[in-house]
């Protein structure tokens, strides 16, 4: 298994000393994100998030299946993560690393367990037919802060996604193709976003947002806070690492809330742009059709 090269002691010291002098290697403020970009694919449900050099692609899809026996009224919702050797040679196919397990657990807790998607609305025929929604997360390039990027990609993909429309008439379930009926959006309740803090220094006194891969290798601890813009915490995970003052954590949570509000409006704006883009095409086509007549 090829292992990721670890930074040398001198490199570590350099990064740390620079941070103590309030300087980040790429010149950002401590609570500043790298340039964030979000593009949607031509298909519904494909979102591509770029955060600096980190790039994550999420694709949502849906199919009709049988529900779990113990939850006949709930649809099925899964998030699958894959860290392939494409992102870094340290990742292997088929053997989940700790990073991958933690990433998928975090996404699951943030999006699934917080009830962002109303799974009851995915039920078609109780106990027999439900929608199974699945999001595949692919990390295309790994330069730190995978969690925040992946979470944004998942939420964006799900909100962009349209599932085929269905109807129930006298016991017969019909699934319409996009040509027959316009696909419908998922019933979405709230949009959680992750904000990850990285801590540096002997007592974890320096806190950074959106750490790069190099910074992640040097950090002594991290804390991922998931919130929605209504100020509800969906999940907090500080899984070990150097202990950090409780007061610092509270401050981090408050800063995270402002970041989440930014993300939220950013995503809303991008979704609106995308709808406009698609809509414009449709309108033009209609107009031209009218002209023809």
């Amino acid at each position: 298994m090829p292992r990721e090269a670890e930074p040398s002691l001198n490199e570590r010291q350099f990064i740390l000393q620079a941070l103590q002098e309030n300087l980040r290697l790429d010149g950002r403020e401590f609570d500043q994100y790298r340039p964030l970009e979000l593009t949607f694919g031509d298909q519904y449900g494909v979102a591509d998030v770029t955060l600096g050099k980190t790039r994550v692609l999420a694709k949502a899809s849906a199919e009709v299946t049988v529900p779990y026996v113990d939850r006949p009224l709930d649809g099925i919702f899964n998030i699958a993560t894959e860290l392939s050797p494409m992102a870094s040679p340290a990742f292997e196919v088929g053997r989940p690393t700790e990073t991958e397990v933690l990433l998928s657990r975090l996404l699951e807790k943030t999006v699934r367990r917080s009830g962002a998607l109303d799974t009851e609305s995915l039920c078609l025929v109780a106990g027999q037919k439900v929608w199974s929604v699945r999001v595949d997360v692919h990390v295309l390039s790994h330069d730190g802060n995978l969690i925040d990027a992946a979470c944004l990609a998942v939420v964006a993909a799900l909100r962009h996604f349209r599932k085929p429309d269905t109807s129930m008439e006298s016991g017969i379930l019909t699934v319409y193709t996009p040509a027959e009926r316009e696909p419908v959006a998922l019933s979405w309740l709230h949009s959680p976003f992750c904000v990850t803090w990285s801590y540096f220094g002997d007592e974890g006194e320096i806190a950074l947002l959106d750490a790069t891969w190099r910074e992640e290798q040097v950090r002594v601890g991290s804390c991922t806070i998931s919130l929605n813009r209504h100020g509800e915490i969906c999940q907090i995970a500080k899984l070990g690492g150097t202990p950090v003052e409780a007061v610092t954590l509270l401050q981090c949570t408050n800063t995270a809330l402002t970041k989440v509000k930014e993300f939220s409006s950013f995503l809303d704006k991008k979704l609106a742009e995308d709808i406009k883009r698609r809509d414009k095409g449709g309108l033009m086509a209609e107009l031209s059709a009218e002209n023809d007549r």
């Binding site: 367990r113 007592e203 907090i236 500080k238 202990p243 950090v244 003052e245 509270l250 949570t253």
Partner: peptide
Amino acid sequence: TLGESDRVAVLVCESRVQVGRLEGMLAVGV
């Protein structure tokens, strides 16, 4: 926490809760 200090080594929250209540819960937990 690490001993009697206020320094938090692990903080795991898996349920939805308002931000405002975090402080009280954290204080009681510590």
